[in-house]
Every structure is written in structure tokens, then in C-alpha cells.
Write a protein that binds this DNA or RNA. Structure first.
Lengths: 145, 145
DNA sequence: TCAAATTAAATTGTACAAAATTTAATTGTT
DNA sequence: AACAATTAAATTTTGTACAATTTAATTTGA
């Protein structure tokens, strides 16, 4: 029994890990036209919803810390997608906001979610179930200690 | 409608990406005792099944290329977990095999899959469904072009 | 048979990812 | 007020990821 559990194919964790990377690969050609990476695209998704946001708030939404975000946001700033500026109210915080250029990519991005869903080949109830289960996994892990 | 699809929370791809990283974090304290990382642990899972394997074969199982594997396998070799040697039959291939030490970690690892499943809080039919759906996603993506 | 095509690793360069530490600003307490 | 504790980013270090290129070995075909 334990023998079988140590087989790669039986590991749900490996499937999630592999699927995440394969999905990211699917995004690459689409995101190339926007000249952003997948994590940068995720940051843009958040910023398109809420133009102003601290690094901390962005990190909470993306499950990423400043060690990852700081350099990534600097790259995005160098590409003129966002602006980073210290908050006046609390100088510890850095506020991230969209530039015109960052804002303008939203239109180009509109077709991406649909294209990806199509590639994944999952629809309707199966898709809903997948969301539900992954949501449960994420919640369990957040709480769990 | 497109508006909603560009929301982070509605993106199944983001959930997979976030879940993969959160799951990896769950492994960390357990794998620390074996002094390996999660991708290294995955390589060991494969090697515990089949002691001898080329880098290419390993890459096919893990969905990783030599650009990732070569440095990782060198680190594992430096830690005395594996041996890398050119194949005699085909000098282009590098054969990876376990050392005594690498072999011996298998026992310590036996409890890990169960511990992780417990953290994820998914059981029975829901777990089976998750496997089935992720398998479908991986297959669709492999074929798709 | 021998040059062209293919293949397997390695290398190069860019970009995450996360733990651990550091720095600077703010808050809470006495 | 003043100092300890806390907080937010940045920095440092190590380790993946992966596209693109290079190198060396093998296979193929005229």
C-alpha cells in the first residue's frame, strides 16, 4: 500500500504541480503579445480590478511575498506597465498603480481566459467541481498548521 | 461577461498555480528531514521505482528538460543521493542511478504522501475526481496544438 | 561512406519562488 | 516622550523553470 503511494503517477500533488507548469506554458504564446510573463499577467489582473494597491495587498491576493514581488514589480515598472511609490500615509508601504500602458493591455487580454479554458478542455460541471475542490485545498492549507 | 473572466478569483488556472505552490510549501518541513527539495523528491520517487534511468526518460516523467534537470541532478550528486554517468551504449545519454544514501531515504519518505493528503483535506470520490480532471487537463495540453 | 539531419545534454540568460535577514517606519506601552 | 515590539519592503541566497543556443554523438540517406 505504502509502496503504491510512493509512485509518481498516484500522487495528486505531482499532478497539480505538473498541470500548473503545463498551463503556464499554454499562456506563454498568448502573453508574448502583451510582453508579460504569467505572474506579471496575474498582477495585472488584480490591478485591472483595483488600480491602486500596496505590495502587501497584492501579495495576499497572489500568495507571493516581497522577495518575489519586489524584483518582479521593478521589472514591470521598467517596462512602463506600473508605477511604484511609497505611501504618504505610511512610508513603509509601496503603492503599485497602473500606467496608461498597463491599463491599455486590458483590452488585448480579454480573449486570453477563454482561449486557455478551451485548451484545458474542461467544461460545465467538471470545471465547477475542479474550482470547488481546489478552493477547498487552498483553504485547508491556509488554515492548517 | 469578459469582465468577470478577467477577475483573478474566477480563474481556474490561477487556482492550479496557487495550489501547486501552497502544496509545495506543505512538503517543505517534511522534506527538510531528508534534506531534499520537492522537485528532487519527485526525481527520487521515479528512481525508487526504476533505479537506472536516462536524463531524457526522467525528464519525460517529470515534464522537465535538461535545462532544469542538469543542474538539479548535479546538486543531488553533490549531496551523494545519485550518480550520473554517460551511457556506454550511447555516449549522448547520461544515466542517473541511486546511491546507497539515495536508496535509504525511501523508508523515511514512506509517510510523506499520507501526511500531504491529510493536509489537503480531500478524500474518496472527490480525490478521484480531482485526479481524473487533472489527468484530462494534462492530456489535453499534451496533445493540443 | 560520409556529409546532413537528428538527438541528448549542457550551457546561457532571464524570471520566478521562498526562506532568512536587514532596514526603516509605525505603533503600543509605560 | 521614549523605547520595545511590530510591520512592510528590500535584500541575500539557493533552487527551480524554461526558451534558445551550443556541443558532441549517433543515425540516415544519397
Amino acid at each position: 500500500m505504502d509502496n503504491d503511494m510512493l509512485k509518481l503517477e498516484n500522487q495528486i500533488c505531482f499532478m497539480v504541480y505538473a498541470a500548473a507548469r503545463e498551463i503556464t506554458k499554454q499562456y506563454r504564446p498568448l502573453l508574448e503579445e502583451l510582453d508579460v510573463t504569467y505572474p506579471q499577467y496575474l498582477a495585472l489582473l488584480v490591478l485591472w480590478e483595483k488600480n491602486e494597491l500596496s505590495v502587501k495587498e497584492l501579495g495576499e491576493k497572489l500568495y507571493l511575498d516581497s522577495g518575489t514581488l519586489t524584483p518582479m514589480l521593478k521589472r514591470m515598472e521598467a517596462h512602463k506597465l506600473i508605477i511604484r511609490q511609497r505611501s504618504k500615509q505610511d512610508e513603509r508601504s509601496v503603492i503599485v498603480s497602473l500606467t496608461e500602458k498597463g491599463e491599455s493591455l486590458r483590452g488585448k487580454a480579454a480573449c486570453i481566459p477563454g482561449a486557455l479554458l478551451e485548451n484545458m478542455n474542461i467544461y460545465g460541471p467538471e470545471l465547477d467541481q475542479l474550482k470547488k475542490t481546489l478552493g477547498k485545498v487552498l483553504n485547508s492549507i491556509q488554515e492548517g498548521d
